[in-house]
Simulated scan of single mutants.
Amino acid sequence: MTQLVEKVTEPLKRLGVDASYGAPVEIDGATIVPVALVWFGFGGGNGNMGAKSDADAEGEGFGGGGVSVPIGAYVTTSLGVRFQPNLIALLAVGIPFVLVAGHVLAKLVKAAKK
């Protein structure tokens, strides 16, 4: 099991900045560096804790997953560097936040009136 975990996690050592920022791309004299929010998680397992039933039960296990949300890009031109957000990702993240904030604000106003 230890070798399996080492084999799976070895490529993850380069994650971090490499996963959050893409390779620079040159388009029409502008340099574009894509940016993403990246997170991931992993699990593990083992088994056979002295089992004397269920046909001497054994075990193993492993799992993992991750998400990458493109949030925009840094654009470098002769005028300077600016961050250009991905409006679709901004809406996807922002709409639930606004709904929750509105719900909480409505509850606070209702509580203040009492």
Rank of each mutant, 00 (worst) to 15 (best):
K110W: 03
I71Q: 03
Y74W: 14
G16Y: 06
S53K: 13
A111F: 08
V17T: 11
A92K: 08
S78Q: 11
K52M: 09
G29V: 12
G65N: 01
I27R: 15
G65L: 03
V5L: 04
R14Q: 14
A19Y: 02
R82P: 00
V35Y: 06
V5K: 02
L105K: 13
M1H: 01
G45A: 10
P96I: 06
F62H: 01
V38H: 12
G47L: 15
A73P: 08
A30K: 15
G44H: 05
F42Y: 13
S20C: 14
G61I: 02
A23W: 06
L99T: 09
G61W: 00
I95L: 15
V98L: 14
A23F: 06
F97Q: 02
A92W: 04
L99N: 11
Y74I: 03
F97W: 09
Y21G: 00
V17R: 11
A89T: 10
Q3I: 04
V25F: 00
L90Y: 10
G43D: 08
Q3L: 11
L99Y: 11
A57N: 11
V81Q: 12
I95V: 15
A19C: 01
I71F: 11
G80Y: 10
G63T: 05
Y74A: 04
V38L: 05
G64V: 08
P34R: 01
S68F: 05
S53N: 14
L99K: 12
E26K: 08
G102N: 14
V75T: 06
G29Y: 11
P70K: 10
L87C: 04
Q84G: 00
P34T: 08
A92N: 05
T31Q: 11
G59N: 07
A57F: 12
G45Q: 06
L105P: 02
Y74C: 01
